[in-house]
C-alpha cells in the first residue's frame, strides 16, 4: 500500500506492506537507523519518535498509521533538539548509547510538554517511565534533561560539532 509520511521535514512516498512497523519503515526503508529496537513489547522506548510532535513507540505503530502524519526522529536538525544532544554529551547521559536516541526524543517531547511546570527530578522520573536504560542508572540522564531545559530556556549557543 502507498504511504505518505513526512519525516524530519521531508516527504516520503513508499509502497509498503501494511504490516510494516513504523520503526522498520524508518530503519529499513529510509535508512534512518538512529531509531533503535530494544524489546518486542513496547516497554523499553528505544524506538521513541515523535508523531505530530507527540512521542510514540515506533515499534508499536504501523507505518500505515503514520500515513499523512509527520514523524521526527533523532536525525532531525532542530536547535532545541541539538541543545538536548549537547546536554547529554556534557553530562555523559549515556554509556552504551543504545537507549539514547529514544531517551533524547522523549526528552524533546517532555520538555515541550512541561509548559510552565518545574522540570525537576520528580517530573522527569514520572515522564521517563516509558524508557529503559540498563547502563546509567538514570542519574546522568536526568541531569542531562535538566541541563537541556536550562539551555533551551536560556537559548544557549549550540556547540557540539555534528
Amino acid at each position: 500500500m502507498m504511504v505518505n509520511i513526512r519525516v524530519n521535514g521531508k516527504q516520503y512516498k513508499k509502497d509498503i506492506e501494511p504490516r510494516l512497523l513504523l520503526v522498520n519503515f524508518l530503519r529499513d526503508e529510509l535508512n534512518l537507523t538512529g531509531t533503535h529496537i530494544g524489546c518486542d513489547t513496547s516497554n523499553c522506548g528505544a524506538c521513541t519518535v515523535l508523531m505530530d510532535g507527540k512521542s510514540v513507540k515506533s515499534c508499536t505503530v504501523l507505518a500505515m498509521q503514520a500515513n499523512n502524519h509527520e514523524i521526527t526522529t533523532i536525525e532531525h536538525e532542530d536547535p532545541e533538539l541539538n541543545a538536548i544532544k549537547d546536554a547529554y554529551v556534557e553530562e555523559q547521559g549515556l554509556q552504551c548509547g543504545f537507549c539514547t536516541p529514544g531517551m533524547i526524543m522523549e526528552t524533546f517531547y517532555l520538555l515541550k510538554d512541561a509548559g510552565n511546570k518545574d522540570v525537576d527530578d520528580d517530573y522527569i522520573k514520572k515522564k521517563l517511565s516509558g524508557n529503559l536504560c540498563r547502563c546509567t542508572g538514570y542519574r546522568s540522564i536526568i541531569d542531562s534533561i535538566k541541563k537541556a531545559n536550562e539551555k533551551i530556556r536560556e537559548k544557549e549557543e549550540i556547540h557540539v560539532s555534528r
Binding site: K54, S55, T60, Y109
Partner: peptide
C-alpha cells in the same frame, strides 16, 4: 495508564 508514549498513541 502505561507510559507517556503509550498514552499518546
Amino acid at each position: 495508564v502505561a507510559d507517556p508514549q503509550v498514552r499518546n498513541m
